[in-house]
Design a protein around this nucleic acid. Structure first.
Lengths: 175, 175, 175, 175
DNA sequence: TATGAATGAGTTTTCATTCAT
DNA sequence: GATGAATGAAAACTCATTCAT
């Protein structure tokens, strides 16, 4: 499953082949079909497992301000520049979710949990009291911003992430 | 090429087949190989042509404030909910650009032009003078926000786009 | 072996899988290879065992006229309409016998015994004295008729078996 | 399609492989899937085409007595001993028809036409006036007898077909 | 002795590309 | 120029058999 997750990020969901997964994992071809009901099921399981490992809601529970969340995003994004595995995987999964109902449901649950975790931080953050938007909306917007920056970083690795995040900080601080 | 662009959005870049393109266009199978050097070249041309038609820099030249740009994004995003063709195509192309050098270059140029157009608006917008970030950074951030919201809208069509944009407005207004 | 015999009738000799046999029998996969030298041997044994259970020569020993044999065929054929297991199995085995030498020999022995049993009845039946054919020939012909009707009944369950047998009775009575 | 029909007879319906068909026909593997919607469709078409070529209703139109029909069966059966292609193919198709609805329908139509042709002969045959059975029933019975003998001849090539047919003649003559 | 995980040869099918017409 | 029949490489998947436990 690790091999599958890496391959999704490397070559794209629709171009992962069971042979490549098996080769990467050092297993024979038949092993993939033997252990999973089919290629799609393998990819779905592999992607979701990777997300669950990468996203730990507890980490957010300790945070008290949105600034810290954004700082976390930035750290993650910078680390991602080197190994874009999880980020690319997330984007591939989001695209695939439009076509695969099960993936859509399970990924949706994961995203809702993430939004909830960020919304809880927003609720605790007194600096946001000036904003009329609900904590849930702020959380959704922030995660969308994070994903958008991720997307652009993947295309253009020379993008100045630091400046972007500084601007985001400034906008929130002003509010 | 229109048929190809639609199919990329529908089934994903890696799963478009030349036969499906020909069938959708009402052309004979052989026509695809006859008119293009190969499948990849067809898809690249089709995607870029679709972007060039959808993104008209002149539209931004008439705008005087970032608020208007955001309003434009919102209108576009709402219209996208019905036919996600261009949005999905853009995401597919962004993912593919990581692997295809020519697509990366040409798509990069397009994005840079878009960023420049938005940066020009930001430069004209006096309401942003309070932000220390450069107009280019603000433009890049805004486009990333737009793409991030697009991505999330495609997965979860019930997402309240209006609330998100209202929050974005508020954040910018505060700044 | 019962599971194997049923599966031959259901899906056809060439499409039985060892996993399906094991699953139907409620046994682990490995058990099939463990207890039999291979799939083919299992199927041969299973088919022959089923025939030996279904065909009891003693039943014919009690009969005194070919009419009774035919009546027995008819009864069997009618009962077969509901559960075509043994009939279908017989046809599958007959086809397979053309390719498998061991099955051919053992099935041939079984059929010869059946012909002999019917021939013995024919010998005892005084009503057949008018026919110049030997009891063995009459027996072989009758069994062929039975199998032919069986074959057609399996394809076309609405075939009027009663009328067919009545005509057969009439033909023999006339002779 | 000729290669497919021969292979069904040789190795059995369920064990025909598209590779073997292609090899026998001297074509590349891909050709089979290219020209037919799938293996099953190829086999169905091949079998039915072979039957339509082998069974010509016009041949029966010229006959005036059932004796001639039986003589025709015998000739066919004897010729079959050398190349059991059509006979074996028919049996395979009959078995398969139990599982494939389309084959069942189309084969059923063919068999009904054959029964009708034989029934027409039976109607013209004045020697059968002594039998109370309808011409249709007599036809169905005769064809079943023919198929049954065919089946047994395939298993046991040493079976004395001549004696069987002589007995059949005698039975009908008596009636 | 018995199990079931693992293997890999073999199956059907797809499809970009070629090329004779 | 344009077509579509043909090719063959590669894909996903099946399954009898093996063998460590």
């Amino acid at each position: 499953m690790e091999a599958a997750a890496e391959l999704i990020a490397e070559v794209g969901w629709g171009r992962v082949t069971t042979r490549a997964v098996a080769a990467k994992a050092g297993l024979p071809h038949g092993a993939v079909s033997y252990h999973f009901a089919g290629k799609q099921q393998l990819l779905v399981e592999a992607a979701l497992k990777a997300f669950e490992r990468a996203f730990q809601p507890e980490e957010f529970a300790r945070l008290d301000s949105i600034e810290e969340v954004i700082a976390g995003f930035e750290t993650e994004l910078r680390s991602v520049s080197g190994s874009p595995a999880i980020a690319a995987l997330m984007l591939e999964a989001m695209r695939e979710a439009e076509r695969d109902a099960e993936l859509r449901d399970r990924l949706g649950t994961l995203l809702r949990r993430a939004r909830q975790a960020v919304a809880d931080v927003a609720r605790r953050d007194e600096g946001l009291s000036g904003l009329s938007a609900s904590p849930e909306t702020i959380a959704a917007l922030l995660i969308a911003v994070g994903d958008g920056l991720l997307l652009h970083c993947l295309i253009d690795p020379e993008l100045d992430v630091g400046a972007q995040f500084a601007a985001l900080h400034a906008m929130l601080a002003g509010a």
